[in-house]
Write a protein that binds this DNA or RNA. Structure first.
Lengths: 349, 349
DNA sequence: TTGAAAGCGCTAACAC
DNA sequence: GTGTTAGCGCTTTCAA
């Protein structure tokens, strides 16, 4: 029943050659004679030999394993990222070890260490906060860390290659779109300020407001990562007498929270209040109204970060950190419309 | 810069003990004296030693790596599954190697072989079709295969532990719900018949129809896995003069396809046509109308399959295959309503 | 309670 | 073009 799996030694013996030759026909590291090659290949199929990747990784000092860390797998944006990366990995003969940090810095730290212990060849991280992965570079293990690329968050973190979106520009365009529709009271809804991408989005929002001399009307709703937390924050804003006429949600989860909150109040989108989201995915088109959103280039995120990582692993890339910033696209759809003129607003203007 | 990482030998030397003792304090496999333990722990922290999991896995014949194979990571149902499994894995000290089969049998096969080569301790698969993983059990590698649990699809496959939903019952309840609302022309939309779960859903649908003496009116729309393919199939059905008054979508992707198709025709849900879906996730509540759906117990899928896998790995479970079937929940919401009485239908009845 | 030593299965020098 | 051999870093007998 549980017969020992054949090793390369078994192959060599059956083929009547040395293990080196057997190894060479398997890996093609050295030329092998026609005769030997044939004997080895037939021995391999006769025995049903399969190489032990653990042993080969240990010896060759290359596991062809890439660690990937995301805050939450169920977030459609991260799921898209994982999908893209996994595809590239498969093409390049790598496998992905996927771990979730659950938006917790300590967990993230611990799990990354565990991945490094597994001798991964590279690391792809969507860090919990901009600062969370910094200690890894500074610690004793600095020189022993595998090539690492930070995605989405942590843009520009010193010591790391980073791939992110042009968040400020995207948010600027989105806010401008709302202003052009006549909105003057635009609330932004998002989580943690401790992330470069989120603060960049807020910055873009502020800039657009400032340019329209609306700077004083900025309304920031900041909450935790969860849907409920975001929902609570926007609820509070909506219950105010002078509630906003538009909500700019800075993440896809925030957009969902905003929609739920607005719906719960029986308000119409965009009749009573406009909602503008972030990220884009299949299901959004089933929403009524179809959500106006700032789409991030998920595919490009995946391909750029993968390319960067491969360059680092092969030692091609030069020393200084590389930062790649990808453009967002404002997708104007149905959830944003002209601002409803409110009595108070009319009187006030 | 690239100093060699300290090994357990370095630790032993610095602590003035043997490697065996150092190993034992790291792993606790054997009792170690107070004095030795202290010397080793301080040597470890002095050197910043971290064990090489590759080497330990090779020697101990246990990688603490679980392979997970899904058809498509971006499908919210599978994403939820991955999330749940990853959580359990983390708790138990395992890591997940995630691969996507892309609904392709050959790819699935190839990637599973690669996972086995990595000496994974267990395998969790949502197979492309019911038959796709069977050859693995039959092949020469049969005895060399790691414990494997099939999820969602492949229920009851010989030689495998399987975890699935009570699809027939769920679909029966859903269809009955539609019949009670007065629907007599109910189309089902789904992909591949070659999956036990899908055919069970169809069976449940048929049974409900039969019991209402509506068996002759069964309408099957079968398509490929893609959104577009499903969309095409349901479009065809909707363009018929006697189009259905209700659509029962057998997967979440099918539900999305149905919604898009109905919308494109300018029809109202549920006024003109009812839509009933499968699976349930956060974003559905942002849909207008909120989708009536058959929810599968994703969390339980994850916990049951994990428990089963752990039992097999530890050799606790007895020999015969185990099948676990989890109940679905019909969530009646807004997308299903009374059947609109059509002229033709009135005349016909 | 501890140590010495034999490998796990493989690759890469180094020889020929 | 091929073989011999020394490890990769670790765990685990076996003996003390």
């Amino acid at each position: 029943m549980s017969r020992r799996a054949p090793t390369i030694r078994d192959v060599a013996v059956l083929a009547g050659v040395s293990v080196a030759t057997a190894s060479n026909v398997v890996n093609g590291n050295r030329p092998v004679g026609e005769e030997s090659r044939w004997r080895v290949t037939s021995a391999i199929s006769a025995l049903g030999y399969r190489p032990n990747r653990l042993a080969s990784a240990l010896r060759a000092r290359s596991s062809r394993l890439i660690g990937m860390v995301v805050p939450d797998i169920t977030n459609v944006f991260f799921a898209g990222l994982i999908h893209g990366i996994e595809e590239h990995a498969a093409e390049s003969g790598y496998d992905l070890v996927l771990v979730s940090s659950g938006e917790d810095e300590a967990t993230e730290r611990r799990r990354i260490e565990a991945l490094i212990d597994r001798q991964i060849d590279g690391l792809l991280v969507v860090p919990t906060t901009d600062a969370s992965i910094l200690p890894l570079r500074e610690g004793r293990r600095a020189s022993l860390m595998p090539p690492t690329v930070l995605l989405d968050r942590g843009f520009g973190a010193p010591g790391f290659d980073t791939v992110g979106a042009e968040c400020a520009a995207g948010a600027y365009a989105a806010t401008q779109h709302l202003i052009e529709l006549g909105h003057r009271d635009i609330a932004v809804l998002g989580h943690s300020i401790h992330q470069a991408n989120i603060s960049a989005r807020i910055e873009g929002y502020r800039r657009a407001l400032d340019e329209a001399s609306l700077g004083a009307r900025a309304r920031l709703c900041v909450a935790g990562h969860g849907l409920d937390s975001l929902r609570g924050a926007i609820d509070q804003e909506l219950y105010r007498a002078d509630r906003p006429t538009a909500i700019f949600a800075l993440t896809n989860v925030a957009a969902l929270a905003a929609i739920k909150a607005v719906r719960a109040l029986g308000l119409d989108i965009p009749g009573d209040i406009s909602v503008l989201g972030f990220d884009d995915f299949d299901w959004m088109c089933a929403l009524r109204p179809y959500l106006t959103t700032v789409a991030q280039p998920v595919e490009e995120f995946a391909s750029c970060s993968w390319r960067l990582l491969m360059q680092r692993i092969s030692g091609v890339a030069e020393l200084p950190e590389i930062r790649i910033e990808l453009p967002c696209t404002l997708k104007v759809r149905e959830s944003t419309g002209p601002a409803r003129v409110r009595i108070r607003a009319v009187a006030g203007t």
